[in-house]
Amino acid sequence: MNIFRLSGDVCHLVAIIILFLKIWRSKSCAGISGKSQLLFALVFTTRYLDLFTAFISIYNTVMKVVFLVLAYATVSLIYFRFRKSYDSESDSFRVEFLLVPVAGLSFLENYSFTPLEILWTFSIYLESVAILPQLFMITKTGEAESITTHYLFFLGLYRTLYLANWVWRYHEEGFFDQIAVVSGVVQTIFYCDFFYLYFTRVLRGSGKMTLP
């Protein structure tokens, strides 16, 4: 465990809590892509199956449970409690175009051909594209509430810190998890465009982020 990894996990937790509280307090999920939240819940479900098979640390177990609970709670807010405010019209990204290639690739490129390992690999590949429906929805509506952009900022920061964590672990321990690193780099690249807009528009105090 190193500071990059720990701060990355904290940013991830902050992002998830920001989104949950935004929906809960505004009693609305307008501008939020339910599909991305479903994909994240699937990522956690397929990745954290080892909750039942391997104990790593209290921290590891607690964080996995918290992420799973918050992910499913957020999905239930979007699709059940505040479903009237869910803008399914704008949340039109075809997730099958993500799920099929990701599933196929996880069978082709993995560390070992066992159910747990393939599901873990699936979750790694899926996480790198899970945010695309949300980013697509923002380009479609042409705007995002500032709180939504803060959610995306912390999510992108968590991924950037994980890259730093891998650089550190490679330097310190010679650790290199190729599947996680390649997939993580791809995922972080998707945030670059958003980061540019975030720093040039939202942080200039323009409140909403409106796309050109």
């Binding site: 996990d9 991830h12 560390y111 070992s112």
Partner: peptide, 10 residues
């Protein structure tokens, strides 16, 4: 190979 690597990352 990485299989025996403990997946300690979230």
């Amino acid at each position: 190979d990485l299989d025996d690597l403990e997946k300690d990352e979230l």
